[in-house]
């Protein structure tokens, strides 16, 4: 009898120690959740996007930028500015192992981007060069499950030791039904919240989930960048070689 009572207490103890609202039998680990996130956001073999960026300053004044973005798998991305005129032709290439290149038409040269540039603003937007990289979160961050709400998971991501980043942590809200992240908080090295990204209009296109509108807000500068997907093509057969310096100035 004593053994049975002890066992019941032990089981209760284990259940009580689990995060609230999480039924023990359906619980996914933080690693499993983040793996699913990576799989969902990088599900297409390739992506061809036309994007409109709306930069909004603290007075509500807007600036418009247009760009095209190609992505292959989860680790190669090419971004080219289509407008305004003074940024047209600027191209950015992100490759695995933190290798990034920038093509500036005025100099007729492809320049390697060192990591000190990664944390600077990308062409005046609230996205940094690091934010523009194509990534799998699991490769850069150690996840920790903070909470499970009715329809979402909240993970805290801390960068792995070997990862060079200016973020001390990310807190990421993930839809429980499709594992698509819809809110990300970015904390700087001082552990202060300084940017928030919200993803809206999360829709399924050709079988893949995508957010057609997102917004990155710099809380200190009170500046926002809205990113609207104008056109999207998935699995159009983009070639591996298109993610090379050769294609940066085409």
């Amino acid at each position: 009898m004593k053994k049975i009572t002890l066992s019941i207490f032990l089981m209760l103890g284990i259940i009580m120690s689990l995060p609230q609202d999480l039924p023990a039998e359906k619980q996914l680990t933080a690693l499993q959740i983040l793996e699913k996130v990576d799989d969902v956001i990088n599900a297409p073999k390739d992506q061809d996007l036309k994007i409109k960026l709306i930069l909004v300053d603290k007075n509500g004044k807007e600036k418009i930028r247009e760009m095209s973005m190609l992505q292959k798998g989860s680790d190669k991305r090419m971004v080219k500015f289509l407008s305004p005129a003074n940024q047209k032709g600027i191209a950015f290439l992100s490759l695995p192992n933190d290798i990034m290149y920038l093509y500036l038409p005025a100099f007729k040269k492809v320049r390697r981007i060192a990591s000190h540039v990664k944390n600077t603003k990308f062409a005046g937007t609230d996205f940094t060069y690091e934010d523009m990289e194509a990534i799998r979160y699991l490769e850069k961050y150690n996840p920790e499950l903070m909470k499970k709400e009715n329809d979402s998971y909240i993970l805290q991501l801390k960068p792995k030791k070997e990862v060079k980043t200016d973020y001390s942590k990310l807190v990421i809200w993930i839809r429980a039904d499709n594992f698509y992240p819809f809110k990300i908080e970015y904390y700087n090295k001082n552990r202060t919240l300084y940017k928030i990204m919200l993803r809206e209009k999360i829709e399924k296109v050709n079988g893949y989930w995508i957010s057609k509108e997102s917004e990155m807000e710099d809380l200190k500068a009170k500046h926002k960048t809205k990113m609207c997907i104008v056109n999207v093509k998935f699995d159009s057969g983009i070639l591996e070689k298109q993610f090379s310096k050769r294609y940066l100035n085409r």
């Binding site: 390697r112 060192a114 990591s115 000190h116």
Partner: peptide, 10 residues
């Protein structure tokens, strides 16, 4: 050559 040593571009 071009690259980086630490976070400094060289």
């Amino acid at each position: 050559l071009a690259g980086a040593i630490g976070s400094i571009g060289i």
